[in-house]
Structure formats: C-alpha cells, structure tokens
C-alpha cells in the first residue's frame, strides 16, 4: 500500500529523531539512560507547550510572535499576584491563563475582523506584553510558596535513573489535548481547511472569522500555560525571560513537519520537533568540545532541510491546482 503523502513530513521528523538519538546512544553510553529522556521532557516542556499552540496558528496559515513575551508576562504577573496580593499559586495560574487567553482572543479579533496580517498584530502584541512586564516589575523576583516548591519537587521515578517531573507531565497532557483538538473536533479540522485554502474553506461553509479568533485564543491559552509552567519550574519571574522563544516554537513546529504555509501537519510532529531541538542541545552538551552556538547552526540546517522537503511535497499539489484554471 502506498503511504499517504500527508505523512511524509512527520515520517521525516521521526527519522531525524531516531538518527540523532541513535547517534547519541552510539557515541555516549549515558545517552541511553532514561535520565536523558526525563531531562529532555522537563527542559523542553514550556517550549513544547507553546509550540502546540503555535501549531494551530501555523496550521491556520498564520503566525504568533507574541508567545515569548506572553511567557515572561505571565511569570511576572503570577509573581505579583502571589507575592504582592498573597494569592494561592493555583488561583494565580488560573487568573494568568484567563488573562493570556483573553489577550490571544483580542489579537484574534483584530486579525479576523480587520483582515490584518497576523505577523503585524502579534508583533505588536510581542512588544506590548514585553513592555507590560517591566511596568509590573523591573527585576527578577523569586516566587516563594510551598506549592511552587512542591510543584518543582514532584517526581515520578522512571526505570533507570530518570524521572518525570510535573512540568513534563503537564506538557504530555497538553500534547494529548492538542492532538484531540486538532484531529477529533470540527474546530480542529476547520483550522486545517482554512490553512489549506482559506477562500475554498469559506465557500465550503467554514466559519472563518470565529475559527481564526479561536486559534489565537488557543495560542494565548497555551503560551500562558507555558508561562505558568516556566514560572513554577524556575520558581521565579524575570521580565526578560523567554526572549526569542516564539522563534524556537516556530522552529519546533516546522521541524515537526507542519507546513509553514498552513493546512498540513500534526501536533504530535511538533512534540517530536521540540524533542529534536532538545536532543541537539544535549548532544552538544555531551560532546563538550563544541560551542553551544552549534545548537543554532544545527537547528538552522534542519530548518533549511525541512522547508525544502515541504516545498517538494506541496509542489505536486500546487501543480495540479494550476492545471485547474
């Protein structure tokens, strides 16, 4: 049976992951330990959670540049709520996530109603939120609360020396939630349809505006969740945290096999994409002789490869479309 062409990119992602991980195990014996796996899941948790939201945005044919600033803003906001107002961290997290989702919805409304490039609006959102961080707090502040300590101390032992942290568990839950939304709800399928061909989607009766608003709300929600995880994980908040994370998230989505122009891709691919980025980082740390900037070089090279691969796969499609006119 012929493999469905929709799976080519994610198969490529898996192949890269297996190759990199295999190389790691071959070169460094310690790489096969679950310790590495546990650390990968924990260290990249906030990135992958953000990237899951970004997957929906990119699937719809858009982009969200505000997520990095959102992570920092949510951290600073929570620190203020917990230490300044004496709120319980869970309550603060809920408030912060409502604020984050609302801000995402706000950007979505502007993008949909005024038909503006998401690039511009979320760029504005990025500056706005980063600025708001400094309005609340100029310095790095600790978030001191027994719950936060409990959160960062929580561990499930894995076979071997590794363990799953609360961050990792939340991230895995987010990925599963993302998969369900993307593949088993009409909203999710409508996102794919809009990204594939917005005009056609409209003619097929897809509520384009409300779907786009919900996409950015979802991205706001996931990046706020990521901000909460980041704040709990580091037990602190810093206005300059997570600078450039929006670009890492986009990279994870693309390496995960999602078409940058939208319409094709998998949330699970984004998970693998995030892990690949982590594996590269770990490999370079294990090697010891390489500068950490090699991470960027490797990720850049991978991105080049994936973007060309996507082009090759979509070209056959667009060729057929051109024949239709």
């Amino acid at each position: 049976m012929k493999i469905n062409e929709r799976f080519y990119p994610i198969l490529a992602t898996l192949a890269v992951l297996v190759l990199l991980y295999g190389y790691g195990i071959f070169e460094h014996r310690a790489f096969s330990d679950t310790y590495v796996l546990g650390a990968l899941l924990t260290d990249n948790a906030f990135l992958i959670i953000t990237a899951v939201g970004m997957t929906f945005v990119i699937l719809s044919g858009g982009i969200d540049l505000s997520v990095g600033s959102m992570i920092a803003f949510i951290g600073v906001l929570m620190a203020e709520l917990v230490t300044g107002f004496g709120m319980h961290p869970v309550t603060a997290a809920v408030v912060a996530m409502i604020v984050g989702s609302a801000f995402g919805a706000f950007m979505g409304v502007i993008i949909a109603k005024f038909d503006i490039q998401p690039f511009i609006i979320t760029l504005a959102g990025m500056f706005f939120l980063r600025g708001m961080c400094f309005l609340i707090n100029l310095d790095s502040v600790p978030i001191d609360h027994p719950f936060v300590s409990a959160f960062s101390g929580f561990k499930i032992q894995l076979p071997g020396r590794g363990w799953l942290t609360a961050s990792a568990l939340l991230m895995l839950a987010t990925v599963i939630g993302g998969v369900v939304i993307a593949h088993f709800t009409r909203f999710g399928r409508n996102v794919y349809a809009i990204g594939g061909d917005r005009h056609s989607a409209e003619l097929l009766g897809v509520p384009v505006h409300s779907t786009i608003i919900r996409v950015y709300t979802l991205s706001g929600f996931f990046s706020a969740l990521s901000g909460v995880v980041f704040a709990f994980y580091t037990a602190s908040a810093y206005p300059l945290a997570a600078v450039g994370v929006e670009l890492d998230a986009i990279a994870a989505v693309v390496i995960g096999g999602t078409l940058l122009t939208g319409g094709m891709g998998f949330v699970l691919g984004t998970f693998f994409g995030g892990i690949i980025m982590g594996v590269i980082q770990t490999l370079i740390a294990f090697d010891g002789s390489l500068n950490s900037w090699w991470t960027k070089i490797m990720i850049g090279a991978l991105l080049f490869g994936f973007i060309v691969l996507q082009r090759l796969i979509t070209r056959s499609f667009s060729g057929m479309r051109a024949g239709a006119t």
Partner: peptide, 28 residues
C-alpha cells in the same frame, strides 16, 4: 465552480464532510 473550490491539502473524505462530520460524544 470552474476552479475547484475545495481544500487540496485535506483528504477527500474531509473535503466531502467538512462541517458535517459525524460526531460521537462531541468528537469526530
């Protein structure tokens, strides 16, 4: 229409059933 107004990146089934997918417990 003359030019096919469907979504080329979606499967045939999805194009046919978009917005009309059968759902069980809210999921497709």
């Amino acid at each position: 229409y003359q030019e096919v107004n469907l979504v080329p990146t979606l499967s045939v089934a999805e194009n046919l059933m978009l917005e009309r997918q059968t759902r069980k417990f809210g999921l497709i």
